[in-house]
Design a protein around this nucleic acid. Structure first.
Lengths: 182, 182
DNA sequence: TTTGTACTTGTACATTTGTACTTGTACGTC
DNA sequence: GACGTACAAGTACAAATGTACAAGTACAAA
């Protein structure tokens, strides 16, 4: 018995499976077999679509990064004309953290970038994306401060397993953005 | 030829080697052989002192955490009566990041805690340590905000490989700590 | 229908890895 | 000095893993 033919779908299944595995066990413990089992494809499929395990992991991280960039567009769109900037940023953060699995892959990617410069571009996409947008709106200093608040808050939520304290985040952002906010 | 006998020193050498290896390749890619080579001990020594690889990694993370707790005491001591709290915190952050290798292990531990609750205690030590101290001095809201700023800033410096912008950090902290500062 | 190609699937194999084990050695105890 | 114990160091081996490969299968083109 053979599965119906669907190369693109298959590749996507594998990449998605890889993302889930990375979120669960981390980049270092990700294996062909774990990904194959998670994606529901035979082992050979993972080596057919990706030349090596590194390629597979890189594709998964690229996928996660692309999702974030897409999300970034939404952030910019919704925050551009918002009157209540801290409120919108807080809401967006809460939405982002709702998918804990994806967020974990993101931060896994973040940390992996610390060791391999070729991944740094992905990490930069986020920082520069949010940074540039905020910078244009509230100036570079406040933008950098807000970005640090957001990154630090998300990291703490992910690692400590606690729920996001939206009131606290809003308060912090208001403080940091200061008079730039209406 | 046999090395001179020194159980405690040996154990420490192995733990330190493990920390270095973790900083370089990450928790997931850490192996007995890498640690042994780095520590300059035969392979058998790593299994003699640690029942399993998990134990070895856990010991290394515990070691890193203990170092941080020790550092925490210094932070509290130096910041307790400081007139210029943002300035002192900025200086302490710069000092902390000077040892990039150790800082990386810390954040590796941070992220690992997201997946294994038994590591969460170590991650909590930092957050609660700094948090409680700051909280007593500037109130819970400003303390949490400052903690997020510090965590986010350090994460960005580590992952992007950029130098710490001390002026920016100082500005952010002043903004967050607000009137609580002299 | 026939055929070629891209895809599928299962398996095989060399390598790496965790860990146990054996042998040798230093040091406290008598 | 003799001796037992805790440590040192090398080796062995089973399990896991990355990857190559052979054989089969679906689908488009002719």
């Amino acid at each position: 018995m053979t599965a119906t033919r669907d190369p693109e779908g298959r590749r996507l299944r594998i990449v998605r499976g890889a993302c889930e595995v990375i979120a669960e066990v981390g980049v270092g413990n990700t294996t062909h077999r774990l990904v194959a089992a998670r994606a529901g494809v035979p082992l050979g499929a993972t080596t057919y679509y990706f030349a090596s395990l590194d390629d597979l992991v890189a594709a998964a991280l690229a996928h996660a990064s692309a999702e974030t960039v897409a999300l970034l567009d939404e952030w910019v769109r919704r925050a551009r004309d918002a009157k209540d900037l801290p409120g919108v940023l807080t809401a967006l953060t809460a939405e982002y953290l709702a998918d804990r699995s994806r967020a974990l892959v993101e931060y896994e990617l973040y940390l992996a970038a610390a060791r391999s410069p070729q991944l740094r571009g992905f990490a930069l996409a986020w920082v520069e994306g949010v940074g540039d947008f905020l910078s244009a709106r509230v100036g570079p200093r406040a933008a950098a401060a807000a970005l640090a608040v957001l990154d630090g808050t998300m990291l703490q939520v992910l690692t400590l397993g606690a729920a996001l304290d939206e009131e606290q985040l809003r308060w912090s952002l208001e403080r940091v953005l200061g008079s730039a906010v209406s």
